[in-house]
Design a protein around this nucleic acid. Structure first.
Lengths: 219, 219
DNA sequence: TAGATTGTTAATCGATTAACAATC
DNA sequence: TAGATTGTTAATCGATTAACAATC
């Protein structure tokens, strides 16, 4: 069926790290960069960086590297970060607050236009420049002009409910930070962020580290 | 060189999602589960789930599935979530607060023993049951009994500085939420969490969705 | 020129998918 | 028994790595 090929692609996940570094280098007045330099910064093999960069379609100059300005544009284009993306944030808890305050997101074009919460202590208050609206008013506030992306930072128990409301408004893209998997129609795309996945990765690394070289002798 | 093979392994990242679901099913009184059911929940192919589960070493019962209790233990064991892991959290901002409040982490054995921040408005105050200590006291407070993991939720400009301090204390495992890549000795393992990576994934999916079926006709 | 760096082609490796066997 | 589900072996696919060519 029309099931979208889900790309896990590590390449795409590395792109923002290159971008962050490139933006900083540009800010520092640098004009060119080699894949080796980016690789050393990222602590990965330089051939990986080369492959990633090649995917964007940019042409480098042998012996010189890539023009930073140009590379920034190519990466932005590759990810689709050239035009602003409108979004609504549901859940003004600690995680929602963190996302709202993440400068990089705004820099990459993410425009969080509205913030909702169900906590009456928060509703009406301001959070990082946004008034917090009552989650019960999602429909009336957004129906005229729904944003492209719904960012879900609510509790596991309300995530599905809220998602259903967003979907009813015609929102097709959901960035889900809850620990549960959402049930959504085929034409809705959910990007789930699993922080515990990172912890699992770390713990597996710890496990493999602790089981190796028990005497600390071999290299 | 002794460079640890970095496994990106999607399998490991999926494990916590299975675990979360299994714990909930157990709580609801369920005793058995099939890979098909987990697959439908996760919205992935059942064969993927089967492969993942097989990796843990558990044996299922044909026609019945896996015993939930047993599967939980096998997954925990596979990830290395059987013993508690001590940790310190540096940075009591919104993201740090979110991590501190993430029930699942505690359930998986992550024990955040101390919280530090450099903001004098926060130092001395309590956050989710933890007193916030001055980041300047990291050394004196932790040197006698350093935790296994350092969780970095500080600004990009201080991340390297703080990491160096943790490393000086002998901490070998760092969970880094800053946007920069840390420079660390070979024997220190950094698990970097890149939230912007998730946004990139979502935007690439949006891009590919918007470019397909411009007339909405083909399936 | 020599060396640094990109570009390209081929090989390897690991994850996903397919096909089918086993069995409760 | 028939059907559901796990188990296993093989095929495919995509990402990583290796090797070397090109060239500024």
């Amino acid at each position: 069926m029309g099931r979208l090929k889900i790309l896990n692609s590590p390449t795409i996940r590395r792109m923002p790290s290159y971008l962050h570094k490139l933006l900083r280098m540009r800010f520092e007045g640098r004009t060119h960069v080699s894949s080796l330099e980016l690789a050393e910064y990222m602590n990965i093999e330089w051939i990986v960086v080369r492959r990633d960069i090649a995917l964007t379609g940019i042409k480098g100059q042998r012996r010189v590297g890539y023009e930073i300005n140009e590379l920034i544009e190519y990466i932005r284009d590759y990810i689709g970060w050239t035009n602003p993306m409108t979004a609504t944030l549901i859940g003004a808890g600690a995680l929602g607050t963190a996302i709202l305050g993440y400068d990089d997101f705004a820099r990459y074009g993410l425009q969080i236009e509205s913030v909702f919460d169900c906590d009456s202590n928060k509703i009406g208050r301001e959070l990082r420049g946004h008034e917090i609206y009552d989650v019960a008013t999602i429909r009336t506030r957004l129906k005229a002009n729904p944003p492209k992306i719904g960012i879900l930072c609510v509790s596991n128990s309300t995530a599905q409910l809220v998602a259903d409301q967003l979907i009813a408004l015609g929102i097709k893209f959901i960035w889900n930070f809850a620990s549960i998997c959402l049930k959504v129609p085929d034409d809705v795309i959910v990007q789930r962020e699993v922080l515990a996945g990172g912890l699992a990765m770390l713990c597996v690394k710890i496990k493999s580290r602790e089981s190796e070289t028990p005497l600390g002798l071999e290299e």
